[in-house]
Amino acid sequence: MGLIGKIRDAGRVAEPAPPQPEQGLPAAGLGGSVQVRHVDAGSCNGCEIEVGQAFGPTYDAERHGVRLVASPRHADVLTVTGPVTVNMAGPLRATYEAMPRPGLVVAVGDCARDCGVFAGGYGVLGPVSDVVPVDVQVPGCPPEPAAIVAALRGVSGR
């Protein structure tokens, strides 16, 4: 079966979009366009899989105007996962400082909020809010892709 046949058989994979969530941050002023830079500050990679899913065909964050970008200079939002490890605190701070203002930080996962299962580890510095100011938190270990998309929609306003 060729690629054309596969495209025809797969059809549309995206699930219908849930209704627009409550306006989380109306002051963000992004007008339905959010560019996201992702930083893994020491996560177990479970959260990364869910972030990847949020931008995959099923949850398709792109239809809400959210796009992953390659550089913090292009980004409006920094998504951070995992407890901040000693080695990643510097790069995380540098990434935040490289973003143009206004720049928002979304802490994804329980580890990012309060170190989760890694609390007290010898390499763990602390939750994300100890290193950079956090605007939105997404709870869960790992959080569902739908919850991540909802948080990003709250920022983008769409």
Partner: peptide, 27 residues
């Protein structure tokens, strides 16, 4: 996006991106 099975963004999304970028500070 259609060929990948996604819903995809709106046609005017690049315009929205430009409008937002024009309001942000250059570094």
């Amino acid at each position: 996006a259609r060929l990948e099975g996604r819903a995809g963004g709106r046609l005017v999304q690049p315009w929205r991106d430009l409008r937002k970028l024009l309001r942000k500070e250059p570094i």
